[in-house]
Amino acid sequence: MKQEKRGCRSLVAVSVILVFSIFLITGCGGTGIDAPANAPTTPFLEGSRGVEIKFLEGAPPEEVTDSGTFDFQAIVSLRNEGEYDLKRDDIKIDLLGILASDFGANPDELNDKRPDDDPMPRRRDAEGNIIEATEVFVTFPNEDQFFDYERSVTGNTVFLFRADVCYKYQTKALSQICVLSDLVNVDADTVCDPIETKTVFSSSSPLQVNSFRQTVAGQNKIQFSFDITHSGNGDVFKEGDASSPAADCPRDPRERRQKENRVKVTVDSGLPNLRCVGLDGNTVGFVTMNQGRRTVTCLQELDSDRQDFETNVDITLDFNYRDDVDEEVLVKHLVDSS
């Protein structure tokens, strides 16, 4: 009988412990707010893409017939795979490769088109979930108008439809510099290293910032440099002053030479007395890339009365970018069977 009572008491005790454990788990996990498992640990998604450009399948079609017998449209899809919040007014799209009148269109309908909406970029919410880019469209010649090859071809002929896209874009990058009270006699247990290659984070864009390097230039001076690299397939043009508005990618050879491969660079360390070589305003100016690369070097003078610390360096690149996509259309001669 005593053994049965002890067994019952043991069973009750185990049951109480289980119920209490479930209460704790429910109370901690069910009503509280857990730290998100995928919370972002880096400031950017990173990558080397800007706006992805393509023709919708079948618009234009691969084959059409001549003599005004086949109506069609060319629809360009734009998807902002980078991280810059691009606005529709900062995009221009031209349709090149065809004579508008051959296809029953007005030349003005093929130039300086813009999408109806802003192409929202890829982004990440506070919990680390990636929100994919939205797709926007541009229709040639117009949403309620169509191409139609009106002439008669003597033999099947291929025409090239090229969507030529120019848009403003921006890269943001983040790294850190190390400042010590004594930059010459560095202890082994200091909070940071003033002479090393630093980690740099760069937002997704055709232009990237990488290879951030810091060194000591004196008792009260540090020097840092970084590389700007072009990793996309398009062309870079100047943007950011009165002569170079947004979405300005000149085709005129002379103007193109003046603006091609020019990038506006802004560097901000949050500290006074920062000077960057080649930037007219010390921390803001235009640089010219050579073979897809440019190194920027900056000198940071420091207050003699200082502590040991690390601080962020923010780098911003502003530029116009031109890219294109092609689609071939075969115009077939329609034989008169009458």
Rank of each mutant, 00 (worst) to 15 (best):
I315S: 04
N273F: 10
R6I: 13
G292D: 08
N261I: 01
R151N: 15
R254V: 14
A188C: 02
S15E: 01
S225T: 12
G270T: 11
T316L: 08
T197M: 07
D116C: 00
E52M: 13
T295A: 14
I22C: 11
Q3I: 10
P40G: 12
K172H: 08
N282C: 05
E255H: 05
D326A: 04
I25H: 08
T311E: 09
P60T: 06
P194R: 03
L86K: 02
C8S: 03
V287A: 06
S338T: 13
G29F: 14
T316I: 13
L299R: 07
F137M: 08
S204L: 00
A133N: 00
E46W: 06
C298Q: 00
R162T: 15
N156Y: 06
N106S: 15
F319I: 02
T65Q: 05
S337Y: 13
F44K: 11
D241I: 04
I315L: 13
R251F: 03
G155H: 12
V200W: 01
D318I: 08
P250L: 09
T190Q: 04
T199M: 11
Y167P: 00
A133P: 01
V138Q: 02
T311M: 07
T197V: 05
E63N: 14
N282D: 14
F212C: 10
V329Y: 04
T26D: 03
V165Q: 00
T266S: 13
I195Q: 05
K2A: 08
E301W: 00
N38D: 12
D125T: 11
S338G: 09
N106V: 15
K92D: 04
M120S: 14
F286H: 07
V284Q: 05
G234D: 02
P40K: 09
K2H: 04
G7Y: 12
L334T: 15
I53K: 07
D89L: 12
Q3Y: 11
D318R: 04
R257Y: 09
N210E: 13
E328M: 14
F20A: 15
Q291Y: 10
D268F: 08
A105K: 12
T26F: 13
C192M: 06
I17N: 00
T316C: 02
E150Y: 11
I91F: 10
D112M: 10
L274E: 01
R275V: 10
Y167H: 04
V158P: 06
G128A: 14
D164S: 13
V287G: 05
S243A: 11
N290S: 14
V191N: 07
C276M: 03
A74S: 11
L271M: 11
Q73A: 10
G234R: 03
E63W: 13
K332H: 14
G27T: 07
L334I: 12
P61Y: 10
V16Q: 03
D90H: 08
R123Q: 14
S203Q: 05
L18M: 14
E239G: 00
D323A: 13
L99N: 12
Y84H: 08
P40Q: 11
S15H: 04
L180M: 09
R124M: 13
D241S: 10
D66H: 06
M289K: 03
Q223K: 14
T311S: 12
M1E: 06
M120A: 15
Q214G: 00
N106Q: 15
R294Q: 15
Q208R: 13
S67L: 10
G278R: 06
T69M: 04
I25F: 14
R162F: 02
T31L: 14
E135H: 03
L299Q: 11
L180W: 02
V64Q: 01
V267T: 03
N290Y: 11
D241P: 05
